[in-house]
């Protein structure tokens, strides 16, 4: 049995793989890295509950499976509910039959978390089930063809928030998932990004060490839905952090910590110009929207600094 162990460099990551190659996720997709890291960082025994999503359809098409550990897909909106039931069952069976309770990991996309799965997640967090909830956020319903979700950022073009002549892309802000999770009184929540693998790995290790619900929010670049070359995935992910758009931070027992301090942020245009979903924001007629987004980013960064007790 492997043990919980944080790492210093990428070389320290265990070699053992429990997510087999041959799955059908796109080239450049950030999800496989999340899954491989999670299965390495969380010790056995463990099981995965997967919401209907890209990961679900790409990793299990019958009669194949990429999963070397128990994996359960119930429906779209109920992965946290399914995890609640499994956790409760093992709690009962551990007491009555001495069966060791495995760690339960949920993988759900942003649609399955921010939108349709929000109620089930809220219920499971409030009830305090012992599980790790990981939302992999590619900022739209990618599995059904790039429709806008509550996680789609302001300004982004999707198939249901197109960059039109009158309305240029999504006009609403992204929900604050970590804020919502923390409001349930959970002990640990954090954001993760594939361009910062050591930070990401250690956050999963930390999450696995905590009894009770934890929420991890993972930024996953989507070449198919964001329209960029798959070879640029990590570059796009890194820029999201370096522009302060996607701050890497964690919350533990009442304390906030910014893990990657971005002192001199890169211009957000550097991030936007790599992805066609944002192309319209760089046109002069949409400057008002670009300025608005810049203001949001700055306000959010200041808010985090305040929460982390850092003078701006």
């Amino acid at each position: 049995m492997s043990e919980l162990k944080s790492i210093k460099t990428l070389k320290d990551i265990p070699r053992k793989e429990q997510f087999a190659p041959g799955h059908r996720l796109c080239a450049g997709c950030g999800i496989p890295q999340l899954v491989r890291f999670t299965l390495k960082a969380v010790p056995d025994p463990k099981i995965v509950v997967n919401a209907t999503s890209c990961l679900e359809v790409a990793s299990t098409i019958f009669p194949y499976t990429a999963w070397k550990i128990p994996w359960i897909h119930n429906a779209f909106e109920n992965s946290a509910a399914t995890a609640s039931g499994i956790e409760a069952a093992f709690r009962a069976l551990e007491k009555k039959k001495g069966i060791k309770k495995p760690k339960i990991i949920v993988f759900a996309g942003d649609g399955g978390t921010f939108d349709i799965g929000m109620q089930a997640l809220s219920g499971a967090l409030e009830r305090g089930h012992d599980f790790i909830y990981i939302c992999y956020d590619n900022e739209a319903y990618m599995n059904t063809g790039i429709q806008r979700s509550g996680a789609t950022p302001k300004g982004a073009a999707t198939t249901t928030s197109p960059a039109g002549r009158v309305i240029p892309g999504k006009q609403e802000r992204k929900k604050d998932l970590i804020g919502i999770a923390i409001a349930h009184g959970i002990r640990y929540a954090a954001t993760m990004n594939p361009a910062y693998p050591v930070d990401m790995y250690n956050k999963i290790v930390k999450a696995a060490s905590i009894k009770g619900p934890v929420v991890l929010h993972y930024f996953t670049p989507c070449p198919t839905g964001w329209y960029f070359d798959p070879s640029l995935s990590i570059e796009v992910a890194r820029l999201a952090v370096q522009t302060r758009l996607w701050p890497l931070y964690e919350y533990e027992d009442g304390k906030y910590k910014i893990n990657i301090m971005v002192r001199r942020p890169k211009p957000i245009e550097d991030y936007f110009k790599l992805q066609r979903r944002f192309a319209h924001l760089l046109r002069p007629e949409n400057k008002w929207l670009l300025d608005d987004i810049k203001k949001d980013i700055e306000e959010n960064w200041k808010r985090l600094l305040r929460l982390a007790g850092i003078e701006a």
């Binding site: 399914t82 609640s84 089930a120 219920g123």
Partner: peptide, 16 residues
């Protein structure tokens, strides 16, 4: 499990 809806009641029951 004092669930927050019937949808979750049966979803959790399936998992259990």
């Amino acid at each position: 499990i004092p669930v927050e809806s019937e949808h979750t009641a049966l979803s959790a029951a399936v998992g259990a």
